[in-house]
């Protein structure tokens, strides 16, 4: 017997199984009325997206600012400044 036939026979047998009965009605309604799983309001969504967008802009801006600062305080920049001062 091929492996797939074996799987199919087992699956056919497994489909006859009766799953355990559950009763989640009360627990579901309790969870929904408890509050923490309530969907976000429009205002909350707005603030959430605003915070995410601000972070997305702030991180590259901080990186760019650091790079510019590092470039403007390097030894090459100091030599150039000294030369321009001497010329004046």
């Amino acid at each position: 017997m091929r492996w797939e036939q074996k799987i199919e026979r087992l699956a056919a047998r497994a489909r006859e199984e009766r799953p355990p009965r559950v009763d989640v009605t009360n627990s579901v309604l309790q969870m929904l009325t408890a509050g923490p799983v309530q969907p976000l309001t429009v205002a909350e969504r707005f603030w959430m997206w605003l915070a995410a967008a601000s972070s997305a802009i702030a991180v590259p801006a901080a990186v760019a600012a650091f790079l510019l600062y590092a470039r403007s305080t390097g030894p090459l920049n100091e030599i150039a400044e000294a030369i321009s001062w001497a010329i004046q």
Binding site: R9, R13, R15, E16, E17, R18
Partner: peptide, 24 residues
């Protein structure tokens, strides 16, 4: 063990068969 003969899978209880498949 559970699949060595043609009728082995038929002699299994449905929950046993489901359990074997689940673990495979």
């Amino acid at each position: 063990r559970v699949t060595q003969s043609e009728d082995a899978s038929q002699t299994l209880e449905p929950d046993e068969a489901a359990d074997v498949l689940h673990r495979v």
